[in-house]
């Protein structure tokens, strides 16, 4: 079962003179839900950008399915099976829901499989079926987030990366999104989840990593993280009053 899907070793990344990642390492095994946690500026987004090929790492390796992808283009990484749901629900607002889904599938378009995939997505996201011919911009925030995830799934990713999926959603919708993440994981999807909502993320994750100012401070199961309470209090509770974690 524990075939390694994504392996990051000693990854250094920088924006010009500012170094954002000081040699981090991270593993995602097949079928796992891995949470990547950390406060603002910890380097979470930089890590994702390096995986997806948007940012070229200075040093280190990113291996996906036994292949080095650190210097590949974003399109070719997408084709290899890594699909990112970006922060802030980047859907196409003037295109219909159906067209948004078709765009997700277009890296490997096949009409018959597209129809089957669409059916499958309607099973996961019934609301999208009702809204199929409406412009994406008319959907509510939660529906747009569902559409963004559905669009990413249409490309048949082997690894799904969710960047802050709960950002800006009401508590009830956050519940919905996390239920969905659990369901996807149960269906065997490998997921790398980046969240500031650490409490929620730890409740569903198999393993967790904690980033702080470009250094990996912790890696292990949620229970292990719970036992190292001082780490949790330093990085989730300390200084940021609104992010209280009761572990």
């Amino acid at each position: 079962m524990t075939h390694t899907m994504l392996t990051i070793r000693d990854l250094h990344a920088s924006y010009g003179a500012i170094t954002a990642l000081h040699g981090i390492s991270l593993d995602v095994n097949e079928g796992e839900l891995v949470a990547l946690l950390g406060s603002n500026g910890a380097g979470k987004s930089t890590t994702l950008k390096s995986i997806c090929g948007v940012l070229r790492p200075v040093y280190g390796s990113v291996v996906f399915l036994d292949e080095q992808i650190a210097n590949k283009t974003p399109e070719s990484i997408l084709k290899r099976g890594i699909s990112l749901v970006p922060e802030g629900r980047d859907i196409f607002t003037s295109l219909t829901v159906a067209e948004n889904m078709r765009l997700g599938a277009f890296v490997s378009y096949n009409r018959k499989r597209y129809q089957e995939d669409l059916e499958e997505m309607f099973g996961l996201f019934p609301i999208l079926k009702e809204r199929l011919h409406q412009p994406g911009g008319l959907l509510s925030g939660g529906e747009q987030q569902q559409l963004a995830i559905a669009r990413a799934l249409m490309s048949h990713p082997k690894l799904l990366i969710l960047d802050e999926p709960s950002l800006g959603l009401s508590p009830a919708l956050v519940d919905q999104i996390f239920e969905l993440i659990v369901r996807l994981r149960e269906r065997g999807m490998t997921i790398l989840l980046v969240e500031q909502n650490a409490e929620r993320a730890l409740r569903v994750a198999d393993r967790a990593y904690v980033l702080n100012t470009g250094v990996m401070e912790f890696s292990g199961t949620p229970e292990e993280l719970e036992n190292e309470l001082d780490i949790a209090s330093v990085y989730f509770g300390g200084g940021e009053g609104n992010k209280e974690v009761t572990l």
């Binding site: 974003p74 980047d90 003037s94 295109l95 067209e99 765009l103 277009f106 890296v107 378009y109």
Partner: peptide, 23 residues
């Protein structure tokens, strides 16, 4: 068509279009 759809996607949001693999 596929070309037209990708073009409309680029009109909507150039960066999101790149993110789903559109040149």
């Amino acid at each position: 068509s596929s070309l037209g759809l990708r073009l409309r996607a680029s009109r909507d949001d150039r960066h999101a279009a790149k993110a789903v693999g559109i040149n």
